[in-house]
Design a protein around this nucleic acid. Structure first.
Lengths: 327, 327
DNA sequence: CTGTTAGCGCTTTCAG
DNA sequence: CTGAAAGCGCTAACAG
C-alpha cells in the first residue's frame, strides 16, 4: 500500500532503547528522575523511530487533554474571527489546542453541541454563543468543565464570565443626540443575543428616541431595501449591529444622492477595521475582540489551575466618532 | 466542593441497568442487535445518570476520533474565516469536529504544529498553510493521516489537493491593460505562499509590465505610506493581495485629492464582501472561499473512506471589474 | 440477543 | 534511578 509507518508505540520505543515503558514515559514527560545517558538514548530512539505519543491514550490515563473547547454561533463574521484569533494565540502560549463547536444560531444544535463538548473531554471551554442559556452552562459545569462565558453573566464554582458592555456607550450617544430624527434600530433576522440585548437595553432606557426596523442579514438585501426606503423617506439615523450593515445603509443613501451624515447617519454597534476603511468612515462602538478573546483564554487557563480570583470581567465599549454621524 | 457528578462511566450504566457493558456499548453505538426493551432500559438509565461516552476512550479503542485537524496560518483575515466556515459547516454534516492548528506564518511553529497534529490523532487533516512544504505534508502522510492540501500541489496515496488559481485571471487582466503605467505589485511582509506564488507567476509571465513595491501588513501603515507616495507620484496601478490593502491605497489617493480610477487604480487579488462594500468598489479576483472550504472538507471525508476519485481540484478565480479599475 | 474478556497506548504508584 | 503492574473508559471478537 505504501510507506506508512504503523504508528510506533511507547512499547516499541522501550524495547528498542532497552528500557521499560515507564522510563520512556518519564522522558517524554520531562520528568527529572532519569539519568542523562538513559534520557539521551531514549530520545535518540524516539527520533529514529519517529515516535509520537498518542494524545488519546495520554488523555485517558491522565484525564487531561490540553484541549479547550470553543463554542461559537458562527465563524463568518470578522469580529468573531478576531475573537477566535485572540483565543488561539493565547491558548498556544499555554500549550492548549482548540476544538471548535459551532451552533449556527440554532438552539437545537446548541444542545447537541454541548453534548459533544462534554464527550470530547476538553479541559475547559469558552462559550460565546447566543442560543445557550444559563441552564446549558450549568449543564456544562455539572460535568466539571471549567467554563468562561462571554456575554452572559453566570456565576459558579468553575465558571467565569466576561460581559461585553455596549449598551452604556450607545445609550450615552443616543441621549446626547436625542434631538432630531428618531433613531432606527436595525434589527437583523436571527441576530444573536448580544445584539438583542443591546436592543432590549435601548428599548428600556431610550424608548422615546428609538424605533425598530427589520431586515434580513445580507449586505445586498439591506442595500436594496434601503434604496427603496430612502426614495420615500430621504433621511434617518440608523443604529446597526455590524459595520457591513451600516455600510449597506450609507451606500444606499449615497447612491441615491443623499448625503452622509447630513441626511442619513449610521452607527455600528460592533466595529471592525472596516469601520475606518469604509468611506465615509463609520462611527462605531470600539471593542477589541482580539483582546476579549485573549482575556477569555487567559481566564480559562487560570480557572483550570484554580487561580482565577476575579470571576467577572467587564469590557466597556467606547464610542468612536467618525464621519457617518454628526458631533 | 459542589454538585459535580464524577463522570459516569459505561460500567456504572451497565450495573444500574442490569446489563453488561457490551450491551451499553451496543446501545450507544446504535447497533441493531439489542432487544427494544433492553435498549429502552439502557437509554433511560443513560438519561437518568447523565452518562456521556468518553471520546478519548472510544478513540483509543477504535482508532477513530471523528476529528479533523485544520492547519491554518492565521484566523484574522476575512477570507480565511470564510474558508473555515465552509469546512466547519460541512464537517458537521458528516459528524466531524474540527481541531484548529495555527502556525502564524512561522516555519518553526509549522513544524511543531505538525507534531501536535500527529499526536492528536485526528482522522484527517486539511492544510492551508504557506509555511509547510511538500516534505512536511509527506511527513503527515507517513503517519497515515489522510490530508487535503489547499494551494499546494502534492500527490500521494492519502493526499488530495486543491489548487487556487488566481494567476491566470490576473495575467489576463494585466495583458489586457498593459498599456499605461506599469503595474505595481504590492508585496506585504510575511505574506503567505499563496500570494507569493501569484507574485512569482506575474514576474515570469508579465515581467515587462510589473514592478514591486513593499509594505508592512497594516491598513494604517499602508495608508500613510501611500499618502506620502502619492505626493511625489500622483498616479499608479496597484495589485494588492487583499481588499483591505487595496482600500488603504485608494483611500490614500482619494484623501490627497486624486481620482480613482482616473489617476490611481487598485485591484485586489483576494476579494471578500468588503470589495463591493468599499467605495469606490474594488475590482478583484472572486473566489468563494466558503465553497473552497466546503469542498476541502468533503474531500477529506471521501479520502477517509477511500472514495475519492479525483485527487486534484482546481478553483479558478474570476476577475470582477468594479469601480477601482478602468475597463 | 447478551455477556466475558482482551486489548487500545499511556501514566503512575509501588517496589526494588 | 528504573521496572512491574494496575488501570483510565471503551470496543470488538468470541462464546454462549
Amino acid at each position: 500500500m505504501g510507506v506508512y509507518k504503523d504508528r510506533v508505540t511507547i512499547y516499541e520505543v522501550a524495547k528498542a532503547a532497552g528500557v521499560s515503558l515507564a522510563t520512556v514515559s518519564r522522558v517524554i514527560n520531562n520528568q527529572s528522575n532519569v539519568t542523562p545517558e538513559t534520557k539521551k538514548r531514549v530520545e535518540e530512539t524516539i527520533q529514529r523511530l519517529g515516535y509520537r505519543p498518542n494524545a488519546l491514550a495520554q488523555g485517558l490515563a491522565t484525564s487531561r487533554t490540553t484541549n479547550i473547547g470553543i463554542v461559537l454561533s458562527d465563524t463568518n463574521y470578522m469580529y468573531i474571527c478576531n475573537l477566535l484569533s485572540g483565543m488561539i494565540d493565547i491558548g498556544k502560549i499555554y500549550g492548549y489546542q482548540t476544538t471548535l463547536f459551532v451552533t449556527k444560531h440554532s438552539p437545537d444544535e446548541a444542545k447537541e453541541v454541548i453534548s459533544k463538548l462534554i464527550t470530547s473531554h476538553v479541559d475547559g471551554a469558552i462559550v460565546f454563543d447566543d442560543e445557550l442559556d444559563e441552564s446549558d452552562i450549568r449543564n456544562i459545569e455539572s460535568y466539571n468543565v471549567p467554563t468562561v462565558i462571554i456575554g452572559n453573566k453566570v456565576k459558579g464554582d468553575k465558571i467565569a464570565s466576561i460581559t461585553l458592555n455596549f449598551i452604556d456607550g450607545i445609550v450615552d450617544f443616543v441621549e446626547k443626540h436625542k434631538n432630531g430624527d428618531k433613531f432606527q434600530f436595525v434589527r437583523i433576522a436571527n441576530e444573536g443575543k448580544l445584539i438583542r440585548g443591546v436592543e432590549k437595553g435601548l428599548e428600556e432606557k431610550c424608548r422615546d428616541y428609538i424605533e425598530t426596523i427589520s431586515c434580513s442579514d445580507s449586505y445586498h438585501e439591506v442595500y436594496s431595501h434601503f434604496v427603496d426606503y430612502f426614495k420615500s423617506i430621504p433621511h434617518g439615523r440608523f443604529i446597526c449591529p455590524r459595520d457591513s450593515i451600516a455600510c449597506a445603509i450609507q451606500n444606499a443613501a449615497l447612491d441615491i444622492g443623499l448625503k452622509v451624515p447630513e441626511d442619513v447617519q449610521v452607527l455600528s454597534i460592533i466595529g471592525t477595521k472596516y469601520s475606518s476603511i469604509a468611506r465615509p468612515t463609520v462611527s462605531s462602538l470600539e471593542m477589541d475582540m482580539y483582546e476579549v478573546g485573549s482575556i477569555a483564554m487567559r481566564m480559562v487557563t487560570k480557572l483550570l489551575k484554580d487561580e482565577l480570583k476575579n470571576r467577572e470581567f467587564v469590557f466597556n465599549s467606547e464610542f468612536v466618532q467618525r464621519a457617518s454621524t454628526t458631533e
